[in-house]
């Protein structure tokens, strides 16, 4: 690190370094976890688009809007749960097979979407 640099540039550089380290460490993440991350992002973005639509047009029909958003958010939450359980770094779930976690994920998704369909109207 060069000491003569200004505070702002140092902050920028710090941030840059931080991002760099984050990216480099994320590269090391196993592919299956990356897939789950991608899936979570997909769900959250879909939810955001629906919220934008609601902000522009209005909340009618409100239950449809709620089911759409909650479907996305619920899927994302379940995916996060799956990620926690599948991650090998988490010693807590060492004894849990990833297949079992996936089975849980599928089942929870089915139950969630049954409720969502019921609520959709």
């Amino acid at each position: 690190m060069v000491k003569s640099t200004t505070t702002t540039s140092s902050t920028a550089k710090d941030a840059q370094a931080l991002f760099h380290s984050l990216r480099s460490s994320y590269v090391a993440t196993p592919t299956n976890l990356k897939i789950i991350d991608l899936y979570v992002l997909f769900a959250i973005f879909t939810a955001l688009i629906q919220i934008c639509y609601m902000a522009i047009v209005g909340s009618f029909p409100f239950n449809s809007f709620l089911s759409g958003v909650l479907s996305c958010v619920g899927t994302a939450v379940l995916a996060v749960c799956l990620r926690i359980q599948v991650n090998k770094e988490n010693k807590e779930f060492k004894d849990l097979a990833p297949e079992r976690a996936f089975a849980d994920f599928v089942l929870c998704n089915l139950v969630l979407h049954l409720v969502i369909m019921n609520f959709l109207g």
Partner: peptide, 20 residues
């Protein structure tokens, strides 16, 4: 907006391809 909701799906699929 219906079309727009499919955009994240495509992003997801593209990301999957990128990840191989």
């Amino acid at each position: 907006f219906l079309v727009l909701t499919f955009v994240p799906l495509f992003g997801f699929l593209l990301g999957l391809l990128r990840l191989g």
